[in-house]
């Protein structure tokens, strides 16, 4: 007998529910899986263009109270700038945030799906998922997107969560196959990720204060924008600045535009004085 709204399903995962009952709503559902299999062998094996998600720098750095997660604002279409104000850092729930690199559409969809997933689990089970559990679930979602990644629609998340049980912030990076790797101090992904990591490697210290870690994160983004065409720097004319969030025991705290502008004003003044 068919019951309205009582489908035959008994898991606490919203993602699995969509895959089973509404596959058209989820990348990695049955339809996209079949198109994935239809790819030619040549495309499947030419892994080179897959290796690097393009046109973004997002990063996460641990500090005394948790993790700061930040990203630039530029979206590109080939050699054109598609959007100057796009948001790449998302609050997922009260203790976690993620930043994304890759194709904008699927990236934003995955962030939204992940938000729903965690809220759904919390409501059904009465308790939120553990930090580790959230990181693993995100890995499964990245894995489900693999067929689309072969078609060029890459989604590459960077996950920052506050582990309430351990009382510390944690950073997880992923590979295209859904592999999940924990980073001990900091990480950056996207086309400017390497440049950002170089900056952080030079200046990172354990247990930094909030103001110091924010300047480090923003400086790393600035340097990445300096060397990478796909990464947008601070736009002084339009007043568009990178976005950042603190992931702490108190929740996810948005860093205000004024605060970020003040850091960049200082940084730019220092750089300018070197040119004189």
């Amino acid at each position: 007998m068919k019951l309205p709204y009582l489908p035959d399903f008994d898991h606490s995962s919203f993602f699995d529910f969509l895959v089973r009952h509404h596959p058209s709503l989820v990348s990695g559902g049955e339809k996209s899986l079949s198109t994935g299999r239809a790819m030619s062998a040549g495309q499947m094996t030419s892994g080179a263009p897959l290796a690097v998600p393009h046109a973004t720098t997002v990063l996460a750095v641990k500090y005394r109270d948790g993790v700061v997660i930040a990203g630039d604002r530029r979206a590109t279409e080939g050699f054109q700038i598609a959007d100057r104000r796009i948001e790449k850092v998302f609050k997922i729930d009260d203790w976690s945030a993620m930043a994304i690199a890759g194709a904008a559409g699927p990236c934003i969809e995955m962030a939204k799906l992940f938000q729903t997933e965690l809220e759904h689990y919390e409501k059904l089970e009465g308790v939120p998922l553990s930090c580790e559990g959230k990181a693993n679930k995100l890995g499964q979602m990245v894995k489900a997107n693999l067929p689309l990644a072969f078609q060029g629609l890459i989604v590459m998340p960077l996950f920052a969560g506050y582990d309430v049980k351990r009382g510390e912030g944690r950073i997880f990076k992923y590979d295209l196959a859904g592999g999940r790797y924990e980073e001990s101090d900091y990480h950056a992904i996207g086309s400017g990720g390497k440049d950002a990591r170089n900056t952080m490697r030079e200046h990172f210290r354990k247990n930094m204060a909030e103001a110091d870690v924010l300047s480090l994160a923003l400086m790393a983004l600035y340097n990445a924008a300096d060397d990478d065409v796909g990464t947008g720097g601070p736009d002084l004319v339009r007043g568009i600045y990178p976005t950042a969030k603190f992931v702490t025991a108190q929740g996810i705290i948005d860093v205000s535009d004024e605060k970020i502008r003040a850091v960049y004003d200082g940084l730019i003044a220092t750089r300018r004085s070197r040119e004189a």
Binding site: P7, F14, H22, L25, E119, H120
Partner: peptide, 17 residues
């Protein structure tokens, strides 16, 4: 409890779609 879960699924699905 079954009805509660079905309701949450219904609501989350609608909110997501």
């Amino acid at each position: 409890e079954n009805l509660r879960k079905a309701g949450i699924r219904h609501a989350d699905l609608k909110g997501f779609m």
